[in-house]
Simulated assay, not measured.
Amino acid sequence: MTEPHPALGLDDTIHQKTRLALLTVLDEAGQADFPYLKKLLGLTDGNLGRHLDILAAQGLIEITKGYEGRRPRTWAAITPAGEQALAAEMRLLSSLVTRFNEKRR
């Protein structure tokens, strides 16, 4: 019996391109505020909010609300579980790239 294709191991929550981008940015920055993420990724308020909610519900990021001066702010930070999940996804993607490149040698 053949083993399942590695691509089947991709995590649907993380692999979605906006959520993968969010986790990658937060992994690099540690934390970022809503306006920064919105501008960097070219998202609407609603779209960004929905993706952040999905990641937070899975425990992959933590959302903090507060104020910067008199303006309300929302920050997102990657959690240890998010770091682990992102690392696992990246390892799987790396193995797929290796597999792809080996076929072309």
Score class of each variant (00 low, 15 high):
L40P: 01
E68D: 13
I78G: 06
Q31C: 08
T13E: 04
G59E: 11
T24Y: 01
T13V: 15
A77N: 03
K39S: 15
A77Q: 09
L52P: 10
Y36D: 15
A81E: 14
L43E: 03
P80W: 00
E68S: 08
T98V: 15
T79R: 01
L10K: 07
R104I: 12
L96F: 07
N47K: 12
L23S: 06
S94E: 14
T79K: 05
L8H: 03
A29L: 14
H15W: 06
G30L: 05
T64H: 10
R104N: 02
L86I: 10
L10E: 03
G30C: 06
A76Q: 11
G82C: 02
L20S: 06
L41V: 05
V25T: 09
G66I: 01
R70G: 13
E102S: 15
L52F: 03
V97F: 07
L60W: 03
L41Q: 05
L22F: 06
A29C: 09
A56E: 08
F34G: 12
T24G: 03
D33W: 09
A21D: 11
E83M: 10
D33R: 13
T18H: 10
K65R: 15
Y36T: 14
L60K: 08
T2I: 10
K65W: 06
A85D: 04
L96D: 04
M90H: 08
T18V: 13
H5G: 09
G49S: 11
E28I: 02
G46I: 05
D12H: 15
A85G: 01
K17M: 11
L20T: 08
H51T: 00
A57Y: 04
E62F: 00
D33A: 04
R19G: 00
L60R: 06
A32C: 03
E28Q: 14
E102P: 02
E102C: 07
